[in-house]
Design a protein around this nucleic acid. Structure first.
Lengths: 212, 212
DNA sequence: TGAGAAATACCAGAAAACCAGTAGAAATAA
DNA sequence: TTATTTCTACTGGTTTTCTGGTATTTCTCA
């Protein structure tokens, strides 16, 4: 990895971002971009055939979620370094990515120096974070929120209907269950997210990227 | 504008996007990128001193809102074409930008061909939209939602506290007014957004970028 | 300076959400 | 095949929001 060029792959659904990264990395001969993808699944099948040193990975992809992709990458090719590149700066998301084995977490509004330094760091076996991310991590955080709650299929379904403005009664009707059941799901949602009412629930769900 | 190079300026808080656009446009000699900014206000003072043919403008900027910037550009330099470049695809946002005089509306996940074609179109005096945007516009819209409601300062303040999960009583306390007043603001918010309850309110506010 | 917008405030009743506790059936994982 | 989780459903009571009115004072800007 020290003499040869480092093989880098970009996975991002924004062609502009790919182009920007490519332009940036081209100027540095120690890197070579061997491929880029706008879909996570296409990348995964590529990874099965090719060696990759660093993956620069968008968390929010159209066809699948970057978090899971990260985990799969680490299962399939543990030596491949993963750098998350995203706009999301929710603490729980970051922690989850680290949990899943990410080597770095950079924000899309990072400067090219930051990006470059980040890639070099993970190649060196170190972790790498945007300044803003570092602050969020080290922050003892009054805002401490535990690892992104795992919702059941039904709960997610109910959550979306709540966000759509439907009342428990209507939701019950739509899902063909008792309104009391919906009330229970509702309560469990509030509990899992540790919030006090739907307003907060919807806000957090958005911040965590569970909705839209 | 036909013989000379078209002067293009990019305003986007993501260096990567700027780099991507720059790389893309460099290959075409009919364009020249004369400047790029990560802040709207800096750009505005630049515009007072320099001629610009096309501004590629991110709607969500750190220091100010791209919507207003668009209006100001059109007031200051009506011959300058404005292309909105953003991730938001809410109908009301698009309409608002058009209202404010934008010449084009492209999505950040657009392909380079789409971007290039878009710039050429607005230079020709035509309007230009991403395919997805065109669909949203022409859609007879079951989803019709009128121009992004204008909130008063107080309403926005209340909205944020609602999103934070505070009850009317607590909000009233915090703002040192009667709970009944908050109820009124609340009602006006629901009315302005044409929604039925806070869940929907918060969802839409997020989609419109009013929160976080 | 005068009109319209914004912020304030009230009443009263209906609807919906929230809280606490319990529990059986069904699906899924160990 | 247990064990655990998920989905379902209930009782009963409290709090909060939502609806539909009305109305005064203070800004704001044309």
């Amino acid at each position: 990895m020290s003499v040869a060029q480092a093989k880098i792959v970009i996975v991002d659904d924004h062609p502009l971002i790919i182009q920007g990264l490519t332009a940036m990395l081209q100027e540095h001969s120690q890197f070579v971009i061997t491929a880029s993808f706008t879909r996570g699944l296409e990348f995964m099948s590529y990874l099965r055939e090719h060696a990759v040193d660093v993956v620069i990975l968008d968390i929010s992809l159209p066809d699948c979620n970057g978090m899971d992709i990260c985990k799969e990458i680490k299962a399939l090719a543990p030596q491949t370094r993963v750098i998350a590149l995203t706009n999301h700066n929710e603490r729980s998301l970051i922690m989850q990515m680290l949990q899943n084995g990410a080597n770095g977490y950079l924000l899309k509004n990072a400067s090219s120096e930051e990006l470059l330094a980040g890639i070099l760091q993970v190649l060196n076996g170190q972790l790498s974070f945007s300044k803003a991310i570092e602050e969020i991590i080290t922050q003892p955080t009054v805002y401490e929120r535990d690892p992104l709650p795992k919702l059941t299929r039904r709960e997610l379904e109910v959550l979306k209907l709540i966000a759509a403005g439907e009342t428990s009664l209507v939701i019950a009707d739509q899902l063909c269950v008792s309104p009391l059941t919906i009330e229970t799901h509702r309560r469990n949602l509030l509990q899992k997210f540790r919030v006090r009412n739907v307003a907060e629930l919807i806000k957090i769900s958005y911040q965590l990227g569970l909705l839209a």
